[in-house]
Write a protein that binds this DNA or RNA. Structure first.
Lengths: 148, 148
DNA sequence: TTGATTTAGTGCGATTTCGCACTATTTAAT
DNA sequence: ATTAAATAGTGCGAAATCGCACTAAATCAA
């Protein structure tokens, strides 16, 4: 492996890491204090996909360890954004349901982030962003498979 | 802001976040226990760019708060990977220098990651990666500017 | 059926991240 | 020269992340 190839990959992952960090911070400054990107992401996911999912399904959707998801869900519970009910199909398991408060949180969050997305959109048009996603998905999928 | 545009950006940042997470974990499983991506990144940066930089310069190169960099540098110090000397130009400041042990750590780390990069390279050619970087840099630069 | 194995979720502890407040030093202003 | 403001770095505490070990329930094997 020649060092220029290696550096190309390093540069790529470095940009990825910094964007993840900056975008996370940017979002969190808009959220009510004490709420984080994972809180928002999970609520958003429950709306976009479907609520009633199990904690494990959520953990694997976000590629985090299940202990991390437990922690995030506890935060959402404390804020009254979700309810947790037993899983009728599996006594070991639970299901996660949005409350009205949780839906409202998501509405408010989106409303306060939209201007930032607009600003970004002005500088980097949506088409450019969309053009990147397939390659990113491909890389993510590879990394996910390679994990063992 | 229509919701499809918003979703396009969400999808993008979501992929970014997951790739950051997976690539970090992938790297860290190759590092000696107790060493993390930031440890490796800082040592690598000191070699690629130049050692003798100040902690603040490193913090801003990696876009992390200076307290975070202090913590990372303490870890590197404990492992004997860097030395910290006063900054002759500024009595408040310090400079960070690689030791031979630190350089060796970097050599070993790279040797153990190279196979993973190779595997990735087989699936996603270098050219494809390189093609993404300019757009990512543009986005990173915007996010960095927008931070205030 | 019964016993072994796998799986979902959590408690706990170690580490990372990072905001806030503080000290020491430098720079700027008059 | 003196004083005010800005800057570099750290100590501390709160929260996030996550590995390990555990319980309870489901699945598999014979």
């Amino acid at each position: 492996m020649d060092s220029e190839t290696r550096n190309a990959f390093f540069r790529f992952f470095n940009e990825i890491g910094i964007i993840a960090q900056l975008s996370r911070t940017a979002l969190e400054t808009r959220l009510p204090k004490g709420l984080t990107l994972p809180h928002f992401s999970v609520v958003n996911h429950l709306i976009r996909v479907k609520d009633g999912q199990t904690p494990l399904a959520l953990a694997s959707a976000f590629q985090v360890p299940k202990t991390t998801m437990t922690h995030t869900l506890n935060g959402l519970l404390e804020h009254g954004f979700v309810e947790i009910r037993p899983n009728p199909d599996d006594g070991r398991s639970k299901t996660v349901w949005l409350t009205q408060t949780g839906r409202q949180f998501r509405e408010d969050a989106i409303r306060s982030i939209d201007p930032d997305i607009d600003a970004l959109c002005q500088n980097v048009p949506r088409e450019k962003i969309e053009a990147l996603v397939p390659a990113l998905t491909e890389i993510r999928t590879f990394l996910d498979k390679a994990r063992d």
